[in-house]
Nucleic acid binder design. Structure first.
Length: 292
DNA sequence: CATCATGTTATAAT
DNA sequence: CATTATAACATGAT
């Protein structure tokens, strides 16, 4: 289910592994998630290295490895980076160091105390081991919550796309990295604008403001609520409860049969826009009737 | 059995 | 070139 907030939560779930040495890597070598990097490369590269740091960008995760623990020396520089994209059904969880992989656990990074498990039953996700370098992520687009995500930036990214629908733009990972189907609908609802509206009829400043609000709110509701648990008690598998945005968000109502707009209580409309199932409020987000 | 799923990508058609 | 449509990927839930 991963959009940017769930991806950040996944990163935090593996956080207890930071600083630890990988003692072994077990994988399902024929799984489709290895279409970029064969499992054998992970198995031969990662053991004996330490997890030094991790971060996310949009829907991507990056775990960086070095040859010593970041706790013991200040100058531990990463030598290798493992990138993970969770696709539609990927998830990360913690288990004990001897965790027996089940059917969809495609790899396990084992440390002395933990098993870091990557599981993905549909295998739309993928893993990618980067060649040794300081930072494999220098070419990625500006993130929505980055201070550089300015109106000028947004104007540049949309310059030749007057005819695109709002929903298609929101799903474009080069423009709104990390925004997926539910966040896109949430942004349209909050603007409020019909998701099928053409960009020419759109206030980019407003779009920037609202998209940032939704990204920040999603992180707060989905990822932050779990973080304090991490520091309070050590690891315990399955401790992370799935967190979702509150009932004041469209999220809570969009898939329910007979779901209503949390603002005006109209019955929600549903249809396919930009190839994805889309929910919106026909009252708050009317179809642009001003078109000739 | 048919449909749908919080994603991406390749390819074809407009 | 921009945009849309379609299929494909692999599995589970309804």
């Amino acid at each position: 289910m991963p959009e940017l907030a769930e991806v950040e939560l996944a990163r935090r779930i593996w956080e207890p592994g930071t600083g630890q040495r990988i003692v072994a890597v077990d994988s399902h070598p024929h799984a489709r998630v290895y279409r970029d990097t064969p499992a054998s490369i992970l198995e031969s590269t990662l053991p004996n290295s330490f997890i030094v740091s991790s971060r996310t960008h949009g829907k991507r995760l990056l775990f960086s490895f070095g040859d010593r623990s970041p706790c013991k020396s200040t100058g531990a520089h990463p030598t290798t980076h493992l990138e993970i994209h969770l696709g539609m059904s990927g998830r990360l969880f913690l288990a004990g160091p001897d965790h027996e992989p089940t059917k969809h656990d495609h790899f396990i990074l084992r440390t002395k105390r933990l098993g870091l498990v990557y599981s993905d039953y549909r295998q739309f996700g993928r893993v990618l081991l980067h060649q040794p370098c300081l930072d494999p992520w220098t070419e990625l687009p500006v993130e929505v919550l980055d201070p550089e995500f300015t109106i000028a930036c947004l104007r540049r990214l949309t310059a030749r796309r007057r005819g695109t629908t709002l929903k298609a733009l929101l799903l474009d990972q080069t423009v709104f990295p990390g925004v997926g189907n539910w966040m896109a609908d949430e942004i349209c609802w909050r603007l409020p604008c019909h998701p099928g509206i053409r960009l020419q009829a759109l206030d980019l400043a407003r779009l920037r403001t609202v998209s940032r609000q939704v990204c920040r709110g999603a992180l707060r509701h989905v990822a932050d609520k779990n973080a304090p648990l991490d520091r309070a008690r050590g690891f315990s598998p399955g401790r992370y409860v799935e967190q979702v945005p509150p009932r004041s968000w469209l999220f809570q109502h969009r898939w329910k049969a007979g779901g209503c707009c949390p603002r005006c209580h109209s019955s929600l409309a549903r249809g396919t826009i930009a190839t994805r199932t889309t929910a919106w409020c026909p009252t708050c987000q009317p179809e642009e009737a001003s078109e000739a």
